Simulated scan of single mutants.
Amino acid sequence: MLLAGDAWSARFETFRQEAWRLETLPQYLMPQEAEDFAAFSDGTRIDPRTVSNEYTERLRRQVTEGRSQGRVHIVTRPLSEYLRFEFSQYYHPHSIAGEEIRILDVTDRHNPLEGVPDFWIFDNSEVVLMNYHPDGRQINREVHEGDIAPFIQYRQTAIAESVPFAEYVKGLDA
């Protein structure tokens, strides 16, 4: 089953305990980000402490409700321009709002999750595959119909092998 629109958005309102994502690409070409990405590339920066939008407000609400949202992004250095943008414009304010963001840098090491696709897992009961072209253009979101046990293990590996976002960016010019 493919997910879009309200069916996709509902996943973030209805999960009971945890929503978690694995990101594997150096860039995501999302049309709604094009203007902000261009501004970032031209030198515009935001103060992550002042960001308040629908996403950050939802994160704050989830924290007060005892629900968590997290992710691990697999990266290599040097960071792509998109990753620098994502760290600055999204990860900083989202982590302040309560998202548990971690980074798995595989620049000088074996990637323990080589070949694993991007995915979301909700409450250890549903996996949604995030399908992309190699250049980061999204193809679709697809509910995984098989065994979710491997995805739970992927999440455990990603968390164990990664570091918190704030620790990773210390000293980076992100």
Results as ranks from 00 to 15, higher is better:
Leu2Cys: 01
Trp8Cys: 01
Ser9His: 09
Ala10Ile: 02
Glu13Gln: 13
Gln17Tyr: 13
Leu25Asn: 09
Pro26Ile: 04
Pro26Val: 05
Leu29Phe: 00
Leu29Pro: 03
Met30Tyr: 08
Met30Asp: 12
Pro31Cys: 04
Gln32Ile: 01
Glu33Phe: 13
Ala38Ser: 08
Ala38Arg: 11
Phe40Ala: 01
Phe40Leu: 03
Ser41Tyr: 00
Gly43Phe: 06
Val51Gly: 09
Asn53Phe: 07
Arg58Tyr: 11
Leu59Trp: 11
Arg60Pro: 12
Arg60Asp: 03
Gln62Lys: 07
Val63Tyr: 08
Ser68Leu: 14
Gln69Cys: 10
Gly70Cys: 10
Val72His: 12
His73Leu: 15
Val75Tyr: 07
Val75Ala: 03
Thr76Gln: 15
Tyr82Lys: 00
Tyr82Ala: 00
Tyr82Glu: 05
Arg84Trp: 05
Phe87Ala: 14
Ser88Ala: 15
Gln89Met: 13
Gln89Ala: 13
Tyr90Cys: 06
Tyr91Asn: 09
Tyr91Thr: 06
His94Asp: 14
Ile96Met: 09
Gly98Phe: 10
Glu99His: 04
Glu100Lys: 14
Arg102Ala: 14
Asp105Met: 08
Thr107Val: 05
His110Phe: 06
Asn111Gln: 05
Pro112Ser: 06
Leu113Ala: 09
Glu114Thr: 10
Val116Met: 03
Ile121Thr: 02
Asn124Thr: 01
Asn124Phe: 01
Ser125His: 07
Glu126Ser: 07
Glu126Cys: 05
Val127Glu: 03
Leu129Asn: 00
Leu129Tyr: 02
Met130Lys: 10
Pro134Trp: 01
Pro134Gln: 02
Asp135Tyr: 01
Gly136Pro: 01
Gln138Gly: 05
Ile139Lys: 11
Ile139His: 04
Asn140Gln: 13
Val143Ala: 13
His144Leu: 12
Phe151Val: 02
Ile152Ser: 00
Gln153Tyr: 00
Tyr154Trp: 09
Arg155Trp: 03
Gln156Tyr: 00
Thr157Ile: 15
Thr157Gly: 08
Ala158Gln: 08
Ile159Asp: 06
Ala160Leu: 01
Ala160Met: 03
Ala160Cys: 03
Ala160Tyr: 07
Tyr168Phe: 15
Val169Gln: 12
Gly171Val: 07
Leu172Pro: 03
